[in-house]
Every structure is written in structure tokens, then in C-alpha cells.
Write a protein that binds this DNA or RNA. Sequence first.
DNA 1: CCTGAACAATGACAACTGTACGTGACGGAT
DNA 2: ATCCGTCACGTACAGTTGTCATTGTTCAGG
Lengths: 131, 131
Amino acid sequence: MARRPPLSKGEMEVARVLWQLGQATVRQVHEAFPPGREIDFTTVQTYLRRLETKGYVKAKLEGRTLVYAPRVEPRKVIGQAVDELVDRLFGGEALPLMQHLIEEGGISDAELAKLRKLIDRLEHEEPRDAH
Amino acid sequence: MARRPPLSKGEMEVARVLWQLGQATVRQVHEAFPPGREIDFTTVQTYLRRLETKGYVKAKLEGRTLVYAPRVEPRKVIGQAVDELVDRLFGGEALPLMQHLIEEGGISDAELAKLRKLIDRLEHEEPRDAH
DNA sequence: CCTGAACAATGACAACTGTACGTGACGGAT
DNA sequence: ATCCGTCACGTACAGTTGTCATTGTTCAGG
């Protein structure tokens, strides 16, 4: 895979919206932004353009409008970002981050239950370190 | 508390080392960097200076050397960074991040067990949303 | 006392990031 | 056919970040 420059915060934000939409024009991405988050139309435009030059999305001219579509799996990018955060803030250990999330972050009881299920499932599915 | 400008990646890296050391000179911080991570002495110096002007650390002149010490709780800063990541990558939901960590990140069986204990403990201690 | 090695502090700078302005093209109303 | 509003595009720009070169200062040996 081509070595892509990392995403900045703003770029990540826009990429996330595009992932949700699957494919969209600048306007659609702009409108799909969460209500609280005010951002200029042209700013979104710039981010999308940069995402394209960085190779994260592809743009197709449809009529007279560019339609953007993702080009990389969200999992990949997100995973990368998470890994980096884990490295920088927790010395590469995932568990402390978990602990932080559980203890400090607002995790509801329902979510805790889900979490427990996740763990159960994983323990059954993958008893050994595959890969 | 004073509103502090956010920490950049590099600043965070240096801050982490300083937290571990508790208190240190530039040289000590520089030497305490993980082996793989090559970084210039003066770069560390610059980061520490910026951390000071940003209010995250305090510097005390000891002899003719500045000794830096943390000024804010790691938990605070880390929490902030984590929150931001959760916002930007997971729409503010902590659970998906957990899921990602469990499924993709390298979590060992032992860690899974610890995690389960954490959950148990939390469920018992705090049956209701006590904020 | 003079000199230079060792080390600290500051200044500088290119690249990147976040944000927006000005310019031009299209389509409907006159 | 012309004018006007809407929309998209490229360009621009100031602030931040990552990195280092240069300058200043102290101490040991001659």
C-alpha cells in the first residue's frame, strides 16, 4: 500500500463524515456535519481536496460537481490513529486506555454489558493468538 | 483552571516522559526517551520550553540548569486527548473504541481477564449513574 | 589567566494545518 | 439574450508544529 501522509484532525473529521455517507459532494458532506460543529463550506471543500491529494479519497466529476468517495477502509485509518494515541499516551499498552475509558469516560451500564459480551465472544472465538 | 492551549503530538510525547520522571532537566528527559525514538537534544529543549509557556510544566533554575516539573495531572491531559479522539473518530461513543481495541488491538488473554475484573468491580461499586 | 570542550538557551525556519476570500460558471427569471 | 443568485473551484494566508543551527556560558587543564 502506498505510504500516505497522516491525517490531521480536521481531515479526519471530514473523512469520518464521508465514510458515513459512502459517497458525497462537498455540499452533502458539509450538511452532514453534526449540528453543533460549525464549519465553513469552503473549509470542507479544502479538506476533501487535501484528502484526495493525500490519496485517502477519490473524486469523480459528475456533471459539474465533484463527487467524493472513500478510497481506504475506515478501520485502517482509525486503527492507525488509535495505535498512535496508545503509543503516545499509554506507552503502547491498550489496557490502560481501556481502564481510563471505563473509569473516567461515561460508560453506561448497558454499554458495560455489551462490553462484557464482546469479551466473552472474543475469548471463545479466538483462544490463541491468530495472525 | 486556566485555559491551556492543547498539546501537540510532540509536546505530549515529551510531557509523558516528564511525568514518568517526575522532575528532570532537559538532558534527563532526552536520555529517558525510548531507544527507538531518535530526537535531537535541542528539540526536546524546545518542547519543554513550549510546555512551560503553555502552562503545562514549571521550570525552576537550579544552579545554572533549568529543572522542569509537571504542573498538571496526567489524567487531565490524557483524558482530554482521549475525549477528543473519541469525538473525532467515534462520534463521541466510547464503546466503539473499546470494541476496536478488543478486536483489532493486541489484547492478550490475561489482559482480557483484567478487563473483565475491571468491569465487575465497576458494576458493583457504582450500580447507578452517579456521574 | 587563557583556552577549549561540554553543555544549555535562544532564534530561526520550512512544512503543515485550519480557515476563508475572490473568481468564475451554470440556470432560472425578465 | 441578459441579468442575478447559487454554487464550486483554486488561491491565499496566518498560526502552529517539528526540527535544528547558532550563540552564550561554565568548568577543567595548561
